[in-house]
Computed example of a mutant assay.
Amino acid sequence: MKKFLTIGEVSKIKRVSAKSLRYYEKLGILIPAYTNKETGYRYYTVEQLLIIELIHICVELGIPLKNFKTYITSQESIDIQKLLADGEEIVNDKIKKLEGQKQFLSNVFTHVMRTNAVKDTPNEFIEDIPDRYFLTIDYKNDLSDYNAVNLEYSKLFEQSMNLGIADNFNQGFFARWENRQCIKQIFLEIPNPHRDIENLYFLPGGKFLCKILPFEEFANIKAQTDFCIVQELFDLKISPHERLIEIQEPVSSEK
């Protein structure tokens, strides 16, 4: 019996419970090399340790154990080529999602650091801001209706996720005046997507006149130009506090 490993030995070597090994047997994805009919003891070969490792990899990748049978050929061997192909696809997708989450955390950090730097600035200031890209939605309702605004934000968040783009954690709205009417668009800033998107708005970089205000006051401010950006500032405080917004207006090159 020395050429076999007991279920206890396999459990210790591969750090898998005997209960799991019996479950693998029940699923038909790992059959003991030998079962003593009198005692019911199960034994495995050294080669089967590799099968257990492949099963563990599938678990880590999120492949349901019941699907492992799809990698077993009619000759009862593992189709490693198919498993590799599926594994690569899953891993690449996970990497893409993790990179997106890492980028989002970086964007949040950048936004919060800037918020902390400017939120207590009492006076207007000029800042040189690089090119920016925004997903936008036309909006005709009252901007003070935060529930309605949040609904539009959620649509843009969902779109950015579907596009596989981590948003820049800047959200707000554009306001431009045409024929004495204010045209409004809800926006979500994103990195350069390097692709054509129907509701993508490109804003060239330049100098912007910036003003920090409590959210309740922005409606009473008269814009000095025909275009302005109103974006919310977040500092990630976990308790309720005053909401701040930042108004940005392009500075004319003539100034």
Rank of each mutant, 00 (worst) to 15 (best):
K2E: 05
K3I: 15
K3C: 11
V16P: 00
Y23I: 06
Y23H: 15
Y24V: 02
A33W: 00
N36H: 07
I52T: 01
I57L: 08
I57R: 04
C58W: 02
G62I: 04
K69F: 00
D79Y: 05
I80W: 12
L83I: 11
L84V: 12
D86G: 06
E88C: 10
V91D: 04
K97R: 15
E99N: 15
T110Y: 03
T115V: 11
A117Y: 12
V118P: 14
E124R: 14
F125Y: 15
I126L: 07
D128F: 15
I137Y: 14
Y139C: 05
N141M: 15
S154T: 14
K155S: 10
K155N: 12
L156D: 04
M161Y: 10
L163Y: 03
N170D: 11
W177T: 15
C182K: 15
K184C: 11
K184L: 15
Q185N: 10
F187I: 02
L188W: 01
L188Q: 06
H194T: 05
H194R: 10
E198G: 03
Y201L: 14
L203M: 09
G206F: 01
G206S: 01
I212V: 14
L213I: 11
Q224T: 14
I229T: 12
I238L: 12
S239F: 08
R243H: 11
Q248I: 04
P250N: 13
V251M: 08
E254A: 04
